[in-house]
């Protein structure tokens, strides 16, 4: 369920405020009354193909007429779309550059189009390219760049006009593992260093798991979940079941400890050398683990709830939507 929080008068407006946003293409309903307030530093926008992610992005940038109200940084997407676009940076999924321009020229041009004076745009273009790791290649034409370099220049051109919010569409697409790692590092660093929030649209759940603090899951034109990753993992039947499952690491005496747990009605899965995954019987809690460890003479070194993976949680949300 979308998390809807009514902002108080003292609070700044939510990054995204969506109220009954609807958009249809002919008979196909791309957005079916989306309502949510979304806040956070790095927000993952997830959903299968056709979920409505791109349409939502278009609505938020004021690129497509829609019903309902979409506000970005407190500005209306329908009446203040140009002000939004001055304050938002967009890194597209597909190649998007201008033929014959070097990276510096492209970023300077991008800055000028976003209203910066030329000298400021040029200075920021160099800084953005330097930041994106293209310092030595910035005078080469973009069309000759490798996929990894193109991704970096797309990030730089999205940053050059000093946006408060960045939309990143599949930023790690086509990157090798090392380049992907570096790109994710850059993205993680942005809120800290530049104070901008990020909306990351991606299919790659590990990327979201690694860098996002909030997640929005879309499916068939609806927002099915909006909240923190922890909330996503905690919620729903999978997570409820997982709340009774613990990862336990002990110092010694794993055989005795496993036997004691079994006698107490726990299901135990051994993970040599000294780890156990323990499912507690209904009506008990983790105290039972300590009691049985004490009885078996085992010493618990590490204990944590066995969390559902992001993929499991994502599939659960999508599955609930189907049900």
């Amino acid at each position: 369920m979308p998390t809807v929080v009514a902002p108080s008068a003292a609070e700044p407006p939510a990054l995204l405020q969506l109220r009954e946003v609807r958009k249809s293409y002919g008979s196909v309903q791309a957005l079916a009354g989306v309502t949510a307030d979304v806040n956070g530093q790095v927000i993952g926008l997830l959903g299968p193909n056709g979920a409505g992610k791109s349409t939502l992005l278009k609505c938020m940038l004021g690129l497509t007429p829609h019903q309902g109200e979409a506000r970005v940084l407190g500005l209306s997407a329908q009446t203040e779309s140009f002000r939004i676009r001055d304050r938002v940076g967009y890194m597209p999924e597909l190649d998007s550059y201008l033929a014959d321009l070097t990276a510096v020229e492209l970023c300077t041009f991008a800055g000028e189009l976003s209203g910066l004076p030329r000298s400021e745009a040029m200075q920021r273009a160099h800084a953005a390219l330097y930041y994106a790791g293209l310092e030595e290649k910035r005078y080469l034409k973009v069309e000759g760049y490798s996929t990894g370099m193109k991704q970096r220049v797309k990030l730089a051109q999205a940053l050059v006009h000093d946006p408060e919010l960045l939309f990143l569409d599949e930023p790690t697409n086509g990157l090798d593992p090392r380049a992907r790692d570096e790109m994710l590092e850059l993205i993680m660093d942005l809120p800290h260093r530049r104070g901008c929030a990020i909306i990351l649209s991606t299919h790659l759940l590990p990327d979201v798991d690694r860098i996002c603090d909030q997640v929005v899951i879309m499916h068939t034109g609806h927002i099915r979940f909006s909240g923190s990753i922890e909330e996503l993992r905690r919620g729903g039947p999978v997570a409820e079941a997982a709340a009774h499952v613990y990862d336990v690491e002990i110092k010694a005496g794993e055989d005795e400890f496993a036997a004691a747990l079994s006698r107490a009605g726990c299901a135990v899965e051994r993970k040599p050398p000294r780890r156990l995954v323990v499912r507690l019987p209904d009506g008990t809690d983790s105290t039972l683990l300590f009691q049985q460890a004490s009885a078996a003479g085992a010493q618990i070194r590490h204990l944590e709830p066995n969390q559902a993976s992001l993929e499991e949680a994502f599939m659960r949300v999508i599955g609930e939507a189907h049900a």
Partner: peptide, 15 residues
């Protein structure tokens, strides 16, 4: 050339 290079995304995501 703009169509081929995807430049419309570049332009229209800006004001």
């Amino acid at each position: 050339r703009d169509m081929r290079a995807g430049a419309f995304e570049f332009y229209f995501s800006r004001p």
